[in-house]
Design a binder for these strands. Sequence first.
RNA 1: AGGACCAUAGCUCAGUUGGUUAGAGCGCCACGUUGACAUCGUGGAGGUCGGCGGUUCAAAUCCGCCUGGUCCUACCA
Length: 948
Amino acid sequence: MDKTYQPEQIESRWYQRWEADGRFAPSGEGAPYSIMIPPPNVTGSLHMGHAFQDTIMDTLTRWRRMQGHNTLWQVGTDHAGIATQMLVERKVAAEEGKSRHDLGRETFIDKVWEWKQESGDHITRQLRRMGASVDWSRERFTMDDGFYQAVQEVFVRLYEDDLIYRGKRLVNWDPTLHTAISDLEVENRDQQGSFWHFRYPLADGVTTDDGKDYLVVATTRPETLLGDTGVAVNPEDPRYAALIGKFITLPLVGRRIPIVADEHADMEKGSGCVKITPAHDFNDYEVGRRQNLPLINVFTQDAAILSEAEAFDIQGRPLPDIDPTLPQAYAGLERFEARQSIIADMEAAGLLEQVEAVNNTLPFGDRSGDIIEPLLTDQWFVAVESLAKPAIEAVEKGDIQFVPKNYENMYFAWMRDLQDWCISRQLWWGHRIPAWYDADGNVYVARSEQEARERHGLAADLELNQDEDVLDTWFSSGLWTFGTLGWPQQTEELKTFHPSSVLVTGFDIIFFWVARMIMLTLKFTGEVPFKQVYVHGLVRDGQGQKMSKSKGNVLDPIDLIDGIELDTLLEKRTGNMMQPQKAKAIAKATRSEFPEGIEPHGTDALRFTFLSQATTGRDIKFDMGRLDGYRNFCNKLWNASRYVLMNAEGEDTGLGDAAVELSLADRWILSRLQQTATQVTRAMEEFRLDHASQALYEFVWNEYCDWYLELSKPVLWDDNAGLDAKRGTRQTLVRVLESILRLAHPMMPYISEEIWQRVAPLAGTHQGDEDSIMAKPWPVADEALLDEDAVRNIEWLKGVIIAVRNIRAEMNIAPGKPLEVLLTKGGSADRERLEANRLFLAKLAKLESLDWLEDPQQAPLSATQLVGEMEVLVPMADLIDKETELARLDKEIGKQDKLIGGIEKKLSNDGFVAKAPAAVVEKERGKLADLQASRRLLMEQRDKIAAL
RNA sequence: AGGACCAUAGCUCAGUUGGUUAGAGCGCCACGUUGACAUCGUGGAGGUCGGCGGUUCAAAUCCGCCUGGUCCUACCA
């Protein structure tokens, strides 16, 4: 074995072996355990968030597999409609200078499939690097044939149950992408804006109570004036009571629009009058519905002004009686140009009363970044009310549990106020909506055109055209848990692995995905999609900033694994930027954070870092320092193993029938191992992977390496130690390490396998060349190996050794200088322990001699430490500096006095003694006694030194 | 506007049902190449647990208010 751990040499080798040996497929035996991977978008590569999430899932999967479950980790990717289409459009534009319209639908879709192939391969390579033990043989894609079938089936059935409908509705329209998007895809951002107050002249010579011949309305979107079909006042508002039912002459347009009474108008705000534009505002749409106002659309799909408006009633039926004329001055103007023109024209007409600066929130498309426009369009919707009810109940009843639980509130709040889901998208990449139209506009929904004809008895020569739109990506990914298992066929896999055990996901897609999966899965399988939802946070950079290309703070998990030169990293972060002006600052920050680039750390160290930071439901600040630390941990484990192998390979490790004698240290470490196994297992069960990793880390480093390996040396290297004892120690060294590797394997698959292959034969758990740690059982604590007596003994031993080390440090004694040490004042147990541990003590504390002093009065002048009742003395008359030592002792005594004072105060409090549990009071008394004893010792010591 | 979460050592974070001398890693200081490991060892310094008030014999932990931060939902005619 190399002297330092070299991850790159082992990782890919083992992954290939596991995969070739079919170790990731379900075993077919044991209780089922399944996780469905949240399918990554085929838009590019996996980022830190994926790496984090995949580490969690792989750790859970490997752990359950070792526990003997029939384990499936289902893998696949998502077609990600908008995101992927945009990406390929950009690519085509850059490479060929063409738009998707130049290519045409079919050619463009072919290009996307090409991209999907390329990108999908990249993603699967990355998953392999992370060590993800997914079942590649079952890999799926949300647009593969099986999903196509599932999607058609779901759509048709929902339609037949009247849960899908089509209609002309006001939707969030993205003028750049030319598609509707759902409420969730809209991001609200604060902006500095203006509030224009306009005068709307009253028609027919009517005046207000105070004699004005106009009403004042205010808007942040003056261009919508063209589509106004009313002005609302509050029914309770005395100022305008007389005007209800009267009319306004809409400026610039000349349309007569009514003044209506509607509670939407807030008497407190502005003038109390509101312009109503039902075709361009969601609130106004509702007012229009209540007040039976017409809807007048004035925008094209680009959000430019139409030359002639389109009027509809609330059902979306055309209203031919309404005059569609619009001022030609605005025709074709883009919305913000139109806004400026309209403001100018209103001002010129003397109708602009004031402009007020305001902060307001604008809706932006999360993909395009364009300002979203409410627009009347024909769209398909899912009626969610009846689907939401059982989905809420499933969580209320506990059939689905969120971890951590507080996300359930977020889920409930959203589900209880759910709006119908707009599922149609005016895109090309996606599942085409299975609806066909004849020339008269009749719609036929079916699984195929052929089925549409058969079911509706349509003539073979009747021309049918399929709906041009595709479905929202989340509609298909909503079927993920059962679609991947073969639904609508009732497959064996579906029976076995559904519902899945746990969904591991970020809080940011609870609404997008989790909620919809629950609704759709309950509807079509009658089962919940998963029993638990483990919600993790976002991976942020070391400063807590979101990682993004534009901030230049992105870390690529592969670079942390393999390392990267500074120059390459700079190129990656500053190359090909949307905002090249930031490149300089980013380069500077990068140079200062990574002056030497990034060293290789290996997959296992990266995974361990993620796990150690995996506090549920909280964002994590990725800490490079911890990554280094856990790389060192891998090295520690590596070198400990080297030590074990050096001492055990070719030696008798107790596999035969020969007698084996276990030392105190052997029994101690075996006992601690059992406790660690219990601890790690419990933490895993509770999804506290940070605790699991920490328990393992502490056991390996602080107990196995720091103490047990040291304690094994005297036995293995001392010629006086018996053969049975040596055999026992070798056996324990090897067995404990073998168990450690199994405990570590779900978290650190590569290094654990690599070492295990060498160690397991010595522990007798390796069965032939084909064997793998993946096939070995998860360690279960053996109660019979718990040994309280050994634990107490080793604690005592450690106490003595630490006492001597303390004295060395305090007295400035060279670490290597052999010392003569006396023990005194203790009880018979201490004397027995001295004899039992003499060998260990002498070696670990580097002692010249170790003796029991019968009469404490005869103690020479010594540096002293207390272990329980017993005193550890290092005689050193000539080494003590009187003044320094007195000062040190006084400081120490002061500390003790403070603690003693605190406890005495507590114990003199009648309330405490009366009300606190007896055990607590006893504990305090015990502490007090200990402190007083040690104080007494310090005082004696002080007196001796003062007397010099 | 409503809600959630967070605030513990210079940094990143643990801290069950209230009882600990409040912990870990990194960083810092001192010493140290003894036959696994300098990606190491030994010892150490460093915290009025964001602030105020309350409940309690006892609060980092429970409750209220405040401050600061992150985020979600809604609204802004």
